[in-house]
Structures are given as structure tokens and as C-alpha cells.
Design a protein around this nucleic acid. Sequence first.
DNA 1: GTCCATAGTTCATGAATTCGGAACTATAGA
DNA 2: TCTATAGTTCCGAATTCATGAACTATGGAC
Lengths: 125, 125
Amino acid sequence: MRPLFHPVPENITVEGILHALSDPVRAAIYAKIVGANCSQICSSFLEVSAKPVPKSTLSQHFKVLREAGLIRGERRGVEMHNTSRCDEINQRFPGLIPAILSAHTLQSKGTARSAAAGKRKPAKA
Amino acid sequence: MRPLFHPVPENITVEGILHALSDPVRAAIYAKIVGANCSQICSSFLEVSAKPVPKSTLSQHFKVLREAGLIRGERRGVEMHNTSRCDEINQRFPGLIPAILSAHTLQSKGTARSAAAGKRKPAKA
DNA sequence: GTCCATAGTTCATGAATTCGGAACTATAGA
DNA sequence: TCTATAGTTCCGAATTCATGAACTATGGAC
């Protein structure tokens, strides 16, 4: 169990953030963490998606979010508590996170039909 | 040579946009297209990055940007003219594109040193 | 202390993406 | 028609991603 890696704010990159949030599962996880006032534990996300996410996959997703600088993870006993690093990122890239989150919100509200489409392919016909 | 595919605005997804712009080469291409008042041809991007981008790779990058709905490509004779679809996207996801672009600008200004780091890995030590 | 349950991580491997050189297509002009 | 130019497509190699199995670390019961 190697120690958790968190980038310092200066090493947080736009590419890392966009990549992390370009996956719908990770975006959903992050949105929920940001939305909650308290820290969230990993296992509460096993059913974040329509089909349940295996816990090894979940662990990788949390790692990506952590290493992108989006969240901070802290082991407390046997659980991992996750909080958002919104303020730090907002200081480095003002407005970026709110814009992405509100776009995600708009999308999930607006389009029930296009949600049927695949992960990131824009329907090939 | 199959015809170019462009998604209609309703099928443009946040995931697609974030994925497309999470690559530094594509982000640079897109920023230049948005910044320019006139359309840009593909071959003018062979040297967007420090090391020259092969034209097959460039072609793929343009395809990703097109299919994400970020740009519109139009064949004119032997060249391909590319323009941004900013307005359409801004209507669907207000503020998203400006936020990402200004974050990219901030980053490229601010950190000459972290630019030395790899593509999206946040320095492992 | 030992044993067990729980919460996550790491490893290994197959699937899916991405990169880039070579070959190809389409158009313009001589 | 022949040649040059601008992009695209194809395909093999390299990389990244997903996930089951094995593992680690902590807490609690005894």
C-alpha cells in the first residue's frame, strides 16, 4: 500500500482535469463529492452508474481523480474519505470546474435519448 | 474518402468535448482555430507541438475535434478548411469553452517548468 | 494475542485506443 | 495525361483501460 499521491496546485494541469472528467463514471463521482458537504467514502459509489462498477475499477477511478488534483483522499481506519479540492483548483483555473459541472448537469437533464448512446462515440450514422 | 461527419448540436456531449481537449496537441489546434478569424487548413498545424506532428496523426486529431462537435471541416479543392463551432456549443453549454480556453492560456503562461513534464502524468515523486 | 470481516489496492491479462509510416484518394495545375 | 499537393485510410506496434483474483491494512470480537 503505497502512500497516496496528491499533486501540489502548481502541478495540476488542465489536461489532467479534462481527462479525468471526460469519463462519465468519474464525472458522476466527482459531481457527487463536490455536491456533498461532507467527505465521501469510495464504496458508496459502487452503484454510481447504471451497471455496478467493480471495486478495482472504482479504485482506479479514484486514483485518476486524485492524481489529477480534483479530490483529496484520506485514509481513516479502513475507509477512504474523499473531499473535493475545488477551492484550490478554482484559484488556479478560475471558473473551470463550475463550467464543467454545470455543463454536465445541463446534459444529464436535457437529453434522456442521447444517454442511450455509447460512452463517447457520437453515433456513427 | 467517406464524407465528413459533424454531430448536430443536440448530440454534442460534454465527455466528447473534454476528451477532445484533454490532449495538448488537439487543445493547441483548437485554440488556434478559435483564435483565428478565418478558417485554418490542416497542414498549417504540422508544427503545433515541439516535435512535428505526422500528418496521419494530425488527420486523426482533426477527426476527433470534428466528431466532438468542436470544429467544422469543409473541403475546398485539395485543402480542408476548419472553423470553430463555438457559438453552437456556447448555446448548448454556456461558458464551457471559454473556461477551458482561458484555463489553457493561464497554464501555458504560468508554468514553463511543469511543461517539461510528460503528457498527462503529474510527476510521480 | 488470533481470527474474521470490511474497505481499498495491486497485479495480471485481455480489450480498446492511440500513434505513425506506407499506401491510397481527390483535386489543381502544367 | 502527368505531377504535385493535401488529406485520408490501413495496419502493426505501443499505450492505456477494465476487471477478476490475490493481496494489504485496519477494526472488532473473542
